[in-house]
Every structure is written in structure tokens, then in C-alpha cells.
Design a protein around this nucleic acid. Structure first.
Lengths: 146, 146
DNA sequence: TCAGTTGTTTTGAGTGATTCAAAACAACTG
DNA sequence: CAGTTGTTTTGAATCACTCAAAACAACTGA
């Protein structure tokens, strides 16, 4: 897919969400898409490369709006600043390294699915189950063992 | 169980963890035990009631030490300050209200940690699965419907 | 039981991540 | 293309927490 097609698609998504199409929004969408899990600073760094002068505050505004609109997904693992990813709508999970805080995606859980359906919910009407796995990433495992 | 017995038990736990027995530690342990999910400020408020003059910084120090020692458990739901609970060692999970941030416990349906096993772990050596359910608590449901 | 050592608490300052508010500005509507 | 409304910028403020150094108290063992 060409960059132009990407841009057109991004525009369509913004309009569909009732958001105005602006350069910072397109730049943020482009910065996050396909680039894993980025915090606001990292997004800002990427955005500034193509759209110099964009404020960090705007990046926060845009990330918030896009997250609310469901065009991006925000995750907030304990001990890390908020991270944003473009992979949305598939309810995947995350693994976080306890040593370096690296984050990776984890596809739908295999086995023991009952864990996702709590018995007693204390009167809560549940609509989402968020799963975060904690462990050592390959690099940190190597260093810890070495 | 008497208050004295509680205190003796707390002392024993601290010693077993290689920690010195101090008034702030006993007070924090007492403040958190059986009182659900409290943030540092709430713990401080309770501690000050029995041990006036205790600094918030000390409460942070103590909560950190007790969490590291496994005498308390810290959870950090997105959008809330860190919360501490006395229920430890059973790898239970939590429900958080999306509207008022109330937190309740949810039993783990599948025995021991990690209660879920991802298929592809991206090279991570996983040791914990943390599950957070999101939904509306009874009170907020009532208000939202009302 | 008391002096010494080591760990804990206090005081005070500092930080990172994020939010708030108001003014300047730009996208969409008719 | 003027008006309206939503965005972005600027600048300041906040929250939750951490850092550092000095004052202090718990445990050790003589």
C-alpha cells in the first residue's frame, strides 16, 4: 500500500470518528502505525521528524483523542508511562519484561480460558478482561544467566 | 484473635523477612490488613491516627519494603495511584470500575500462577499472569441507569 | 546493659508523566 | 469565503512518587 493510500485511509478513519483531519493527527497515526508500543515522548520524536514544531502537548491531545475514538489503543503497564499501539480491535494481550520493561504482543490465550470468566464479580458489570503477562525478555534472560 | 496476637504475628513476619520491627511498619501492616485496597495517602491517614507524626515518605518507604518482602501486595490499575492490599500469596485478580475506579477482588478460577498460558511468548520467560477486569460497579450502574 | 553498627525515618527538595486553561489558530459548514 | 466549532499552542500546574542526606532507633555481641 502506498503512503498516499495510507493517508487517505487515515483521513477516512478520522472523519468516520467525527474528528477533524489535521496534520498532527495524521502524523501521530503514521508514527504509531506498525511501530510497536510507543510512549508519548517517542511518538513526539517521530512526529517532529515529519512535522517540525509540533508540541508535546498536542501529541498528548491527539493520542487521547485517537484512543477515545478507538483508532489507537493505550496500555498502561505498571512502572511504564502509557504506551500506544496501532493494533486494535483484536483483544490481544501483552508481555512486559520485569527487568527492562520491554513490551511484546501476545495472541489470544491458549487454554484455561475459564480464568477469563470470573465467578463472583462483586456486583460489577464486566465488559473487558485485560491480561498482562510478566516475565523476562530474551535479552534480559541472557544477561541474567550470563 | 486479639490485637496483641496480631501484633506478635506481624512482628514475626517482619523478622522472618529480615526487616527490623518498627512502629511505622506495624502501623502500616495494621492499616492495610483487612481494609481492602488502599493508596499511600489512605494508608498514611490511617497510620497517623494511631501514630501521629508519621511522614508520608515513611509510609512510601514502608509500603515499598513490605511489598518487596511479600508481606503486602501492590497493584497499579491504569488511572489510579498504586493500591496496597493484605491479601497475598493467592494470585487473585481485580475488577476496576471504569467510572469511579472502585476496586474489588476476583478469585482466580484456575489454581496457581500463572493461571493463563500464552501460546507464543515472543521469547519471554513468563512467571506471572495479571488479570484486570474492567466494568461498572453496582453503584455506578445504578446511577448510570437511573 | 550499653556502645557500635546498620537499617529506618524524617526532612526537604526534585522528577517524570500528565493535565489544565486560555489564547491563537485552522478545519469544516453553509 | 465568513462564521462556527474544534484543535493546537503556550505556559503553568498537578499528582504520585523518588532521591539524598542527616537524625535517629533497632538489633548485635561484648
Amino acid at each position: 500500500m502506498s503512503t498516499d493510500e495510507h493517508r487517505d485511509e487515515a483521513e477516512a478513519h478520522l472523519r468516520a470518528a467525527g474528528l477533524k483531519v489535521t496534520a498532527p493527527r495524521l502524523a501521530v497515526l503514521d508514527a504509531v502505525t506498525g511501530n510497536g508500543h510507543l510512549d508519548a515522548d517517542a511518538v513526539h520524536a517521530r512526529v517532529v521528524a515529519t512535522l517540525p514544531g509540533t508540541s508535546l502537548q498536542s501529541v498528548y491531545n491527539v493520542l487521547g483523542a485517537l484512543n477515545d475514538a478507538g483508532l489507537l489503543r493505550r496500555i498502561e503497564p505498571a512502572g511504564s508511562p502509557a504506551l500506544y499501539e496501532s493494533r486494535i480491535g483484536d483483544n490481544h494481550h501483552h508481555v512486559v519484561c520485569t527487568r527492562c520493561h520491554a513490551v511484546a504482543d501476545v495472541d489470544c490465550v491458549v487454554g484455561h480460558a475459564p480464568c477469563l470468566v470470573p465467578g463472583d464479580t462483586n456486583g460489577f458489570a464486566i465488559h473487558t478482561a485485560e491480561v498482562t503477562f510478566w516475565g523476562l525478555c530474551a535479552d534480559c534472560r541472557r544477561e541474567a544467566a550470563g
